[in-house]
Amino acid sequence: MILHWFKKKYPDFWEIYAGSFNHQEHNDIDNERFVVFDTETTGLHFATDRILSLGAIGVIGNRIDVSKSLELYLHQEKYNNETAKIHGILKLGHLDKVSEQEAVKAFLSFAKNAVLVAHHIDFDVAIINSALHRMKLPPLKNKICDTGVLYKRTLDIAPDNKHYGLDELCNIYNISKHDRHTALGDAYIAALVFMKVLSALKKKYPQLALNDLFLPRRRQGLI
């Protein structure tokens, strides 16, 4: 606690974000707020690539509130022609765009202390963390869940090294692949996957608790 006095002074938005964790009550799974999100990026190197767009929606229980969703497109200094084929975001597109700082700020105030959920979340968290790093801010404080990992836990025999892509899970869960590769579209798909995986897990483990969902801390940032 004493260390608190020596802590660097961070901008207000960070303090508010960090402050939301102070009184965190750990709810049960049904009442916990999850924020499912996805980032579209210029590439797969979280240190050097940049976020092109970010989509996030809140899930509480079995509920997605469309009016409370976040969809951001970022100004780019760095642009990779190769990935444009996938996400379709042009460097000078017609969408309203924000700066990286603004995007991170909006994301933090949207996410607050919610549990973050994404498909292969390590990468998404890492790329946001490196943006935070550029802003001289500490990494994300949220608990995180990975839909890919959770899915594997629904299987009786999980193949160790197999990675389940979002497309694959769409097929398995019969989810339409509309808007695949837009950030909010992928976030929405991941949210559906998350709700379906969660209900499968609850069936398999009736005692399932919120803590069981989290990805171990030590894995964060590893890809």
Binding site: V66, S69, E71, T182, L184, G185, Y188
Partner: peptide, 12 residues
């Protein structure tokens, strides 16, 4: 403001 999910809901 763009909202991809809302657009998809409209489509449906």
């Amino acid at each position: 403001m763009k909202n991809t999910i809302a657009e998809r809901v409209v489509d449906f």
